[in-house]
Design a protein around this nucleic acid. Structure first.
Lengths: 108, 108
DNA sequence: TTTCATAGGTACTTTTAAGTTCCTACATCA
DNA sequence: TGATGTAGGAACTTAAAAGTACCTATGAAA
């Protein structure tokens, strides 16, 4: 598909409500499914799996299944996923610097 | 509202299908509504207005109305909006470097 | 033996995002 | 005179995203 502006290609990969959050967690190291769920109390099992599948299909996330019971699956960023790091870092940094300043700065 | 991770604050402001695209255009200079519409052939008048209103409400975009007929309205980034620039730059750069490499790189 | 935790799958519903169509006002130009 | 461009409002519909509830398998621990 053709884009009107290159940044749309980026949005295709990291757009949506959860992908950036998931990747921000994976930046700090690989995580198994249950860890991610705990880190994101707002996400449902279904959405987590779905988003991880899409990230995997885009080559951004790696999925490693351990053949054991109870099941163990570990997710991590691929090399390709690491190429998104400047974006993730910038987004995280901005968020840290502007949490609720949207409201608070007016009062200050 | 409380966030589980700071980056959610960022997503609150620039999340969605159009906001990043709009801001990427505004980075290059102020634009009037019709210009933005031409730059984004896929957006509808309604969505454009709606997204600009939200960006304005978040203090990211400036709206200047010229009292003339036919109407003229010019949008630009506020100083606060400029603080998002590192994110926008990173996203644009990634998009430029990875357009359809998602498909092409496999073939190569 | 029953319960628990794990990593999902499936079917269904709800919510939100986005799109469509039709409307206004008025100066300008053909 | 009548069409054109501008910026947007309002009502309505459709599509996509997200959520809910319930299901599986199995080894280990209580």
């Amino acid at each position: 598909m053709a884009y009107n502006i290159p940044v749309e290609a980026t949005l295709d990969v990291i757009g949506g409500k959860w992908k950036v959050v998931i990747m921000c967690h994976l930046i700090k190291g690989e995580k198994r499914t249950s860890e991610l769920k705990r880190l994101m109390p707002g996400i449902t099992q279904k959405m987590l799996t779905q988003q991880l599948r899409e990230l995997e299909a885009d080559g951004v996330v790696n999925r490693i299944v351990f053949d054991q019971v109870p099941p163990k699956v570990v997710y991590s960023l691929t090399e390709y996923g690491w190429s998104l790091r400047p974006i993730l870092d910038a987004m995280c940094a901005w968020g840290e610097g502007h949490i609720d300043l949207t409201d608070a700065e007016v009062a200050e």
